[in-house]
Design a binder for these strands. Structure first.
Lengths: 232, 232
DNA sequence: CGGTACAGAGTTGTTGAACAATCCTGCAAG
DNA sequence: CTTGCAGGATTGTTCAACAACTCTGTACCG
């Protein structure tokens, strides 16, 4: 038997580039992206007929894609009625912040074991946010903020945490899309993100965790308040 | 407009009893249960033909169910090759313990806000485990242990944490099914579970969190060691 | 003997059509 | 204003078909 050569792992890592994905997954990717960027606002109905014709896929394939996104909680499926882009309730928003707080503060606590690359990801996200704010691209500030928190969760060095976090942040975008002002929900926290990054780089994880906890208090209150003043 | 009557919420809660579930979901439920209980061991190939004939559903419906379970990481999908019951790697087991540790310790820390019912769930699970151990039903001891940790996560009072935890524990079962001795992985922790419950009931969450963290150290080491000695 | 090439069989990927079950709309009747 | 009901539209599910791909065994070649 041949011992594993060094380049084997390398190529194994390139397997994902091989384009071995089903149509349903790619359809789900497209829809997910459209939902995340707000092109398909919460409440939108996606009829199999129209969506299938628009994307040029069969109803069966489309339904497989729908199943995936329903499982990700980006769509809701009402039996015999169709699928809709999810409309978050205020309770949903509270819950999203609750689990985020658990995952992110735990990740910060274990930040000591994270490699340099993951710590650098924090800085990249913060810098991108600062640049976007300078240029008053508030939408991009929001995106950078999400990337920052994805990087915070990434400190846990856990593929499952990363995946869960991706889903949660995608879900949280649904909340922002029903509100009009993209600026005031993200800009105030740019400075904090910078501070957090420096604390983590310096190894002051306990202090970073405390500040992060405070951030969640403030952000959750702000978003939930704004959310409750909205429709229904 | 009519104001909402008191019984409306009641009936709304019964909506789930109305059996409005698709065939695909029920198929997924069946397969998930079979995987969890070990009837479909890791590595098993599920061909669309055989599974569809066995469950008397069409290939399309079956594929929708497969998609769900792949998304839950209980099945893996290899393009043009089929779906297989997932075979966890040692890294997977480490990762599962990592995210469990994050969620469960965080949940314990916030146990103060949990209602009495959720605290009682801890006791029920522990008692069920103790009874099963007395009668040497080791398989049930394992199930009770899982229920206990589900209840621990439940202290966070978060539907999303509950759902995530359900998935993680289902996934972890895959690890136990490739090992033969159901006893020694769960029995040693019965006493600890009892202690943890009493600490939480008494409000000593800090001490409970510390003990839980130690449990994860021990359990992870034990399982990963046993796992690494196994095939491949 | 070890490795390559290739045909054949079996499985998956995707589509389109078909039909039953269900929901929605509008209108008529009470 | 509510109830009942026809009809049209949409979803739920199955089936059949075909393309694309994988797997297996065999023949071939060095």
């Amino acid at each position: 038997m041949t011992t594993t050569d060094p380049w084997v792992d390398l190529l194994a890592g390139d397997r994902s580039l091989l384009d071995r994905t089903s149509t349903a997954e790619r359809v789900a990717d497209v829809l997910r992206q459209r939902i995340i960027e707000g092109a398909l606002p919460p409440g939108t109905r996606l009829s199999e007929e129209s969506a299938g014709r628009a994307l040029a896929v069969s109803r069966n394939t489309l339904r497989e894609a729908f199943r995936l996104l329903v499982h990700e909680r980006l769509l809701v499926h009402e039996f015999h009625r169709g699928v809709f882009v999810r409309v978050l309730t205020a309770d949903d928003v509270v819950d999203l912040y609750r689990i985020r707080r658990m995952l992110e503060t735990s990740a910060v606590r274990r930040a000591g074991t994270a490699d340099a690359e993951r710590v650098a990801a924090l800085d990249h996200a913060v810098s991108a946010g600062e640049l976007a704010a300078e240029q008053e691209r508030w939408r991009d500030v929001g995106t950078a903020n999400m990337r920052f928190h994805q990087a915070v969760a990434g400190l846990a060095c856990s593929p499952r945490v990363d995946e869960t976090m991706r889903q949660l942040l995608a879900e949280l975008r649904l909340a922002f899309h029903v509100m009009s002002r993209p600026r005031e929900f993200h800009e105030p926290y740019l400075g904090l993100n910078r501070d957090l990054t420096e604390l983590i780089v310096a190894g002051s994880t306990a202090e970073a965790e405390r500040r992060l906890d405070e951030y969640f208090d403030a952000a959750e209150t702000q978003l939930v308040d704004a959310y409750r003043q909205l429709p229904r």
